[in-house]
Design a protein around this nucleic acid. Structure first.
Length: 343
DNA sequence: TTGTATGATTGGAC
DNA sequence: GTCCAATCATACAA
């Protein structure tokens, strides 16, 4: 009898269980058709399976019995031999995966959108950029901007909560497997390297789940962003007061209707719109006025009168206060450009 | 429904 | 970068 057979034969008596005890007809059939070693393996398997049905105390006692069994060193050495023969098949397994470019792309995108990484900047910057590009009014912009940020924060919160859950589950599962392998290493040969490899496999599985989470988050951010941009693109007419302020400036500077950056900022503040909207308005107004001066003549006269009345009022107030008054003070004009078109 | 007004966008020139 | 010119897309009045 060789070592392996001796050991297996010895182990059959370990738990004091026989096929009759477990009443497995399949094992009985095997016993009849196969030789003694196969029968012994069947016994061992049955004993192992039976352990799972036992209470913790019983299992501990059985484990202790197994660890103290006189044949255990022999079993260990046989398993070492078997492993030595089979280990070649797993030596070629790739140890380290290169960083996945898709994960890197997703990470970069989540960072840029402000979903991962520090909370400030990111998303709000993206929202601000989108708002600036679309050029909505500050009031609406701030509403939609805050709405965008709130929704982004929601996505961020869900993402981090899910990520935390995955990481916790991964950590728990890894610990469980490591403990199991360490425990098993008392009865079969398991090197630390193999435990590491198993941990790496588990991490790979969990990172693929993480990638799905990242992909879903990216999609959600993209949808949110496109909806936000679509909403910004909807045109709304400026209110009457804003149009009046802009027209007043335009017709009172008809010889040079090119407000400076400071003037634009002031007008934007007065009208409750953005500087880029002021620029758009003046661009449109100049071109449309130039194309059809006749049509705008009445409007020009109206504002000329209005400006004159306002100037007179200001002048009267100024003389009362004994100080010189300048209409549209605080708004400077850029050097003349295309001025002849507007004379 | 249709025509007009108007804010936004785009491409080219400077 | 600004500005012009053409154009698009939507709001609004008839």
């Amino acid at each position: 009898m060789d070592d392996q057979t001796r050991m297996l034969t010895g182990l059959t008596g370990l738990g004091g269980l026989s096929q009759a005890d477990v009443g497995d007809p399949d094992s009985v059939r095997k016993q009849q058709s196969l030789g003694q070693p196969q029968q012994d393996i069947g016994d061992i398997l049955q004993q192992i399976m039976a352990i799972t049905d036992e209470s913790l105390d019983e299992a501990q006692a059985r484990k202790h019995a197994l660890n103290c069994h006189r044949m255990k060193p022999a079993l260990f050495s046989v398993l070492c031999e078997i492993k030595e023969k089979t280990v070649l098949s797993i030596r070629g397994v790739q140890e380290e995966d290169p960083p996945d470019p898709q994960i890197m792309r997703l990470d970069n995108m989540l960072l840029a959108e402000g979903v991962s990484g520090p909370e400030k900047g990111g998303g709000s910057a993206a929202a601000a950029a989108a708002a600036a590009a679309a050029g909505g009014s500050p009031t609406d912009s701030s509403i939609e901007h805050s709405d965008y940020r709130a929704k982004l924060a929601q996505i961020r919160q869900i993402y981090h909560s899910e990520l935390e859950k995955y990481e916790q589950a991964c950590s728990e599962f890894t610990n469980h497997v490591m403990n199991l392998l360490r425990e098993q290493s008392r009865t079969r040969p398991i090197s630390p390297k193999e435990i590491e490899r198993m941990v790496a496999i588990i991490h790979r599985k969990f990172s693929s789940i993480q990638m799905q989470l990242k992909q879903s988050t990216c999609e959600a951010v993209m949808i949110l962003r496109s909806r936000f941009l679509d909403a910004r693109r909807k045109r709304r007419n400026f209110n009457k007061q804003a149009t009046e302020v802009l027209n007043e400036y335009f017709y009172s500077h008809l010889s040079n209707p090119y407000p400076s950056e400071e003037a634009k900022e002031e007008l934007a503040k007065k009208c409750g719109i953005t500087v880029s909207q002021v620029s758009n308005w003046f661009g449109n107004k100049r071109i449309r006025y130039k194309k059809n001066i006749g049509k705008f003549q009445e409007e020009a006269n109206l504002y000329a009168v209005k400006t004159a009345v306002d100037a007179a009022n200001v002048s009267a107030q100024a003389s009362q206060a004994n100080s010189p008054a300048t209409p549209n003070s605080g708004t400077t004009c850029t050097p003349t450009r295309n001025v002849l078109l507007f004379v």
